[in-house]
Structures are given as C-alpha cells and as structure tokens.
Amino acid sequence: MFYEIATLTLPFGTAAPANAGVEAFSTSPEAGGELLGVWFSDIGVLNQMTVLRGFDTAEALWAERERTLRHADPFGCGALYVDLALHAYRGFPWMKPVRPSAESGILGPVYEIRTYGIKPGGVQPTIDLWEKYLPARHERSPCVAAMVALDGAPRFTNIWAYPSLDARAKARGQAVADGIWPPKGGPAWLTTSMTSTIALPTAASRLR
C-alpha cells in the first residue's frame, strides 16, 4: 500500500471548517485514494491537522498529488491554512493495509504519529527488524501503520493507537522493561531527527 500524509497548519479556531473541507475534498467523485485518518494535534506542534489517505498504487498516489497541487482549493482549505505539507509513503511490505476502525477494530482515541530519520543504508534493516519485533509490541498497543517516505529526507513514520495517554505510557514502559522494544539494533540506524505528535481524531476520521 501507498499512503499520503498531508499536514495542514491552521489558524486558531478553524478546525471545524477545515475538517469539513478535508472530508469533502477527499471523498469527492474526482478524488483518488481513500480517506483513512484525520487528526488534530493535541501534544506537539499545535494547530495542525494531519490527513492520512491510502492508495493501491504509486501511480494513483501521484495522480492525486497532481490534482491537489493544481486544485484552486486544496483540501477545501485553500483560504484557511497557513501551510500545507504533502508527504508520500510506501507501507512496510509485510504490514497489513491500514483500514478504518469499523473494519479493523483498532481504536484510539489517542493516536501517536512518530517520524524518525534513517541513516544511509538503514531502510531495509529497519523494515526487517520491525518485522521481527513488532508482533510482540503490537500486542501491547496496535501499530496502525509503519511506512517509508518516498520523498524528502530518508525517514519512516509509524502511527499507534491508544485508549488514553496513561495506556500509552504503560504500554511503552512495559515493552521497554520486558526487552521487546525498541527492536534490538534498530536505534543504530536512526538519526537524531525524531518527532512525535499526539493527535485526536476529528469527525471526518475513519480511524477513531
């Protein structure tokens, strides 16, 4: 699967109209891909809306990117957003495609979106290590997506679902204490470029 993460930086107080615009733009008849997640940042860089869309092929992803770039009102928020950043990804090949909560049963409502820079030569080792170690970690709290960037700096992004911030702290702490996470040898392939955002689903999100 291929994915796009769009990050819209919005003026204070515009989340509701932006949410409506994102949903209309992403589900219109001419839209490509599938709207999966729409979140608003709660911890991290504030006043940001993150939109996750899925695509069956790279061609479909780039066609939708072209539509977005040429559109007079991208994401229905052209008159609202202060900044729009678009990032293309390919899911780790062994990961199941991201599906809406109604199908997968995976629920938040607290989502963490983490991005790590990857050192040269680190993409395949990272994918292999996560394949080995993620199943045990996934049992503690579900990993919604793990994906490698197709544009910009070498990096990968992973998205996790938690019922609460307390549950997140407990799952992460116990995984470290039990020695199942992070993957042994994995941090050696990472740069110091690391970001984390705690975000909550909006009404338009199919991941709830």
Rank of each mutant, 00 (worst) to 15 (best):
Arg155Met: 14
Leu150Ile: 13
Ala146Val: 11
Ser101Asp: 10
Ala145Met: 15
Leu107Ile: 03
Leu86Asn: 07
Trp94Ile: 09
Ile159Thr: 04
Thr126Ala: 15
Pro11Arg: 04
Pro163Trp: 00
Ser141Arg: 01
Pro120Ala: 06
Gly105Asp: 13
Gly21Trp: 02
Tyr3Lys: 00
Tyr89Thr: 07
Ala58Lys: 09
Gly117Ile: 12
Lys119Asp: 13
Pro187Asn: 09
Gly78Trp: 08
Trp39Ile: 13
Ser205Phe: 06
Ala24Thr: 14
Phe55Trp: 03
Pro135Trp: 00
Gly185Ala: 05
Thr68Ser: 12
Pro17Arg: 06
Asn47Phe: 12
Arg114Lys: 04
Gly108Gln: 03
Glu64Asn: 09
Val51Pro: 04
Phe12Gly: 01
Ile106Asp: 10
Ala153Ser: 07
Leu129Cys: 11
Arg140Thr: 11
Pro11Asp: 12
Thr202Pro: 06
Gly32Glu: 07
Ala161Arg: 00
Asp128Gly: 02
Val82Gly: 01
Ile198Arg: 05
Trp62Gly: 00
Ala167Asn: 05
Val38Ala: 02
Trp130Gly: 01
Gly122Thr: 09
Asn158Arg: 05
Leu8Arg: 00
Val22Met: 06
Met147Gln: 14
Tyr111Ala: 08
Leu35Ser: 04
Lys119Thr: 14
Pro74Asn: 14
Ala136Lys: 00
Phe92Thr: 10
Pro142Trp: 00
Asp178Val: 03
Cys143Thr: 14
Glu66Thr: 15
Ile113Trp: 08
Phe2Glu: 10
Asn158Ala: 09
Phe92Glu: 12
Leu134Ile: 12
Ala149Arg: 03
Leu35Gly: 06
Thr157Asp: 08
Ala188Phe: 00
Trp39Ser: 05
His138Asp: 15
Trp189Val: 09
Glu112His: 00
Thr197Val: 15
Met1Ile: 07
Leu61Gln: 05
Pro17Ala: 14
Val123His: 00
Ile159Ala: 04
Lys132Phe: 01
Ala167Arg: 01
Leu84Pro: 06
Ser101Lys: 03
Ala85Gly: 08
Pro142Thr: 09
Lys132Leu: 08
Pro17Trp: 11
Ala161Leu: 06
Gly186Cys: 03
